[in-house]
């Protein structure tokens, strides 16, 4: 039965300065290519990941490695604009029970309520700015399944995909450009009163 949209409103992207350069770093899991693009655009990064969010993803991928399966979650934060450029902040991540094997992962239907609870527990108004998942032992890349997910759900300019390989200790980020998946530069940031990031 058809549905009828009666009205709509677009989200207004807020102006907000990005984390200052002295509180942003690369990551020891970055591949050579990731490190290269980080250094190229480190003063104008399109994506910043909060230190604690990165630690959660990394620990999640390591737990999955011990259980020999992939893990996955959502990147939560927001998109902002500053001096004419748009960027995304990942302030936290959320995950739940998974339906996972060595080469496949998705949320388990029974885990959805837990995922929604995590979203409701956040202390900020979130946008889902992308997703992360792991490739234990096979390196960082976007498989056909990953590309379909990126095209189907995360096809806006601010959306990213993070892939971690906890065996090789590698991390890469990707986004869509004119239908193709390409690497995206990112920096890990920490808040003013946190210890500096040590990886």
């Amino acid at each position: 039965m058809p549905t009828k949209i009666t009205s709509w409103s677009e989200y207004q992207v807020r102006e907000r300065p990005p984390p200052p350069p002295e509180r942003v770093s690369s990551h020891r899991w970055f591949t050579e290519d990731m490190d290269h693009i980080y250094r190229e655009v480190r003063d104008e990064l399109p994506l910043y990941v909060q230190r604690t969010a990165e630690e959660k993803m990394r620990n999640h991928s390591l737990a999955g490695m011990r259980a020999s399966h992939e893990v996955m979650g959502l990147l939560l934060g927001g998109r902002f604009t500053w001096q004419g450029r748009e960027y995304a902040l990942v302030r936290d991540v959320a995950t739940t029970e998974l339906e996972a094997s060595e080469y496949h992962v998705r949320f388990h239907e029974d885990g959805m309520e837990g995922l929604f609870e995590s979203l409701d527990d956040l202390d900020f108004v979130y946008s889902i700015v992308g997703w992360y998942h792991s490739h234990p032992g096979i390196g960082c890349f976007m498989s056909d399944t990953d590309v379909r997910t990126q095209e189907g759900s995360f096809n806006s300019p601010h959306h990213s995909a993070l892939v971690l390989d906890p065996v090789r200790r590698e991390m890469e980020a990707y986004h869509m450009v004119e239908g193709n998946v390409v690497l995206r530069a990112l920096g890990i940031y920490w808040d003013l009163h946190q210890d500096p990031y040590r990886g």
Binding site: T3, K4, I5, T6, S7, W8, S9, E10, Y11, G78, R79, L119, V125, Y126, S127, I128, V129, S153, F154, S156, H158, H159
Partner: peptide, 9 residues
């Protein structure tokens, strides 16, 4: 949830 936009249906 991906961009904060809303619609009424």
């Amino acid at each position: 949830a991906e961009n904060g936009s809303v619609l009424n249906m």
